[in-house]
Amino acid sequence: MAQAPALPSAPATLGGKSSGLPSALRGLINNAQFSDVSFVVGKERQVIHAHRCILACRCPVFQRMFSHQLQAERSPQELQVPFVLADTTPSVFLAVIEFIYTNSVTLTCDIALEVLTSAVEYGLDELRKLCVDFIGQSLSVELACEAFQAAVTYGQTDLRQRCLAFIERHTQEIVRTQSFRELSDLGIVSILQSDRLTLDEVPLIRAVREWAHVSSVVLDMPVAEVAQDAVRELRLFLLSPEELTTLERENAKDELIPEIQIAQSWKFHALKKVIDSEPHIFRRRRGTLPRDHHRYLDPPPK
């Protein structure tokens, strides 16, 4: 009796060396051979060559960009016109291209924040995570506020927490940096809300005043208007009467802090009782120096 023919085996996906494809694709980065799209990048107007099919299959932004071109029925000559990317730099854009082609990226502290920005803008979530990890491990006193600002701007919660923890540990050094003075209103408010800053309130108020004056010049707005949200987070109740007197004298020059806020602190000293509805502004920070009146700062037990 003849045997029935054997059923064909199920298809199997077999792989070669895992390093083969990325290595081959790396050779195509900024390679004019077989390139069908180019970009003129940055102030340097550097021409960077690429391949539409690779960019489109790996990046939703490029896919939409090229699809729009085809839908507009551009001529072959029009399709060869380079895209102009004036708001980035060649090194940053090449890092993005490297990731798109190889799923890996070469980062340095000089470009990591800009690559993170590009990753968010291009919808490259894996690249975003790589940038967040790199920046989090490379934080320095000079970089921390700049990275924190980027995290706040682009909603990067994990990076924001890591930066804030670093700022809390190194507050004294960080408030002296230019990047601290260049924080946005939302950025500095987020820092001032922390109980774990390792700096006393007197130098912290001084740092906020310096930030407000820089922001006032940049935004062409009065100091008090620029800082109205930030000064609400200053814990004037931590200051002694002598320090409040000095603060009033300094405040007369720029009116940084509303008079009513200072008056509330004087009222506390007179009554020696927590009366405000926002208990966090009575809390001592990690770096707060002890003063005699601090024993009255804790709200009475319920």
Rank of each mutant, 00 (worst) to 15 (best):
S138N: 11
L130E: 15
H213F: 08
A144V: 15
V208L: 05
R286V: 00
S215L: 01
Q46E: 13
G20R: 03
I260D: 10
A270G: 05
A151F: 13
L107E: 08
E168G: 08
P241M: 11
H49C: 00
Q33V: 10
T13R: 12
P300S: 01
Q193L: 13
E182S: 09
L199Y: 05
F180S: 02
T288K: 07
A207L: 12
L289Q: 12
R232M: 09
P301H: 07
T108W: 00
E146C: 02
R291P: 06
I191D: 01
A150N: 09
P300D: 05
S179W: 05
E259H: 10
I260L: 07
Q77W: 03
D195C: 06
V132F: 07
S35C: 05
S140W: 01
K273T: 14
R74A: 00
L139T: 05
C109W: 00
Q264M: 14
E248W: 02
A263F: 02
L244A: 00
A86S: 05
D125M: 13
V208P: 01
A165V: 14
S215G: 13
A24H: 15
Q3K: 14
C131V: 08
L28S: 01
L297Y: 02
R291Q: 11
Y296P: 04
S18N: 08
Q161Y: 04
P8Q: 03
E242D: 14
A270R: 10
V202Q: 10
A112Q: 02
L124I: 07
P11Y: 03
N103R: 14
S216V: 01
F39N: 13
L236P: 09
E210D: 14
P5E: 13
A150M: 12
Q69A: 09
E121K: 11
L271E: 15
R286Q: 06
C53S: 03
A263L: 01
V274H: 12
F83E: 11
P222T: 06
R249W: 14
L199G: 11
V141T: 12
I257Q: 13
Q172M: 00
D110S: 06
V189W: 03
H213K: 13
F148A: 07
V81I: 07
L25I: 07
K272H: 04
V61Y: 03
L219K: 15
L239Y: 06
E114P: 13
